[in-house]
């Protein structure tokens, strides 16, 4: 007596189309109800013709897939400059738990994707920051955390502070606040994920020609010197 291995359950669908003949209308496969012309609605996507052939297989553009992978495992460079770094550390710790977004810190720039500029950038630190940025592999993103990294913040009159890190390296996301709350930093990362995904859709990823830095550090320091002379 033949015993059904599946104990009476329905057989698993096979990865074989049941009908190989071409239908009238030139279609090759059978499609689900409504045909492949039917549109999806809300959370119910339009039936995918491959689903009938090979259920369980996902189809997507390679760009989208890569962007999804990138945006969900953002490794940040362990790099705190000033007060904002404390809030950055708080975000990583148990209470706020940054890990659930796939964000981990990594002490080496060679394996990092994101650089969080958490704190005041002073002119002495400008050169090392640029060096670190250049050591990071592409694609890479920069988040300017706090008003200091955005525009100089409370120290905008100081003789030694760079008026925003975007004078040295290109910045993707600016986070206001002094210091920004952990929630604000999380929001910045969600925005960054959206940006990575939408960039992939618009084929703007890896366009290095747009990622040229504003000014070299040498220029920055010489510009200060001229300011001092004219003053």
């Amino acid at each position: 007596m033949a015993v059904d291995a599946n104990n009476g359950a329905q057989n698993l669908p096979l990865f074989v189309p049941q009908k190989w003949e071409r239908e009238e209308g030139g279609r090759f496969f059978h499609t689900g109800e409504g045909g492949d012309d039917s549109l999806g609605k809300g959370n119910h996507p339009a039936p995918n013709r491959i689903n009938n052939v090979a259920p369980g297989v996902i189809t997507a553009k390679l760009d989208d897939l890569i962007a999804m992978g990138r945006s969900n495992s953002l490794w940040t460079l362990t790099f705190g400059l000033a007060c904002c770094a404390i809030e950055m550390i708080s975000t990583h710790m148990a209470h706020h738990d940054f890990d659930r977004f796939g964000i981990v810190t990594w002490p080496s720039p060679r394996q990092a994707d994101v650089m969080i500029i958490a704190g005041t950038v002073v002119k002495k630190m400008a050169e090392p920051i640029r060096l670190l940025y250049e050591q990071m592999p592409d694609p890479k993103w920069v988040i300017a955390m706090g008003t200091c990294a955005t525009s100089g913040g409370p120290y905008y009159r100081s003789y030694s502070v760079v008026m925003g890190v975007d004078h040295i390296i290109p910045v993707d996301i600016y986070v206001p606040g002094c210091p920004p709350r952990p929630e604000a930093l999380m929001d910045a990362f969600l925005k960054l994920q959206t940006k990575i995904k939408s960039d992939a859709k618009n084929h703007q990823i890896d366009d290095l020609s747009e990622h040229t830095a504003a000014a070299s550090v040498a220029e920055v320091t010489s510009a200060t010197a001229t300011v001092e002379e004219s003053a």
Binding site: R157, Y159, M163
Partner: peptide
């Protein structure tokens, strides 16, 4: 670095783009 920024004669910047 040129100058001695602790001195009263050393100018502090007003905000400017550089």
């Amino acid at each position: 670095f040129e100058g001695h920024p602790g001195l009263k004669s050393y100018p502090l910047n007003d905000y400017e783009e550089w």
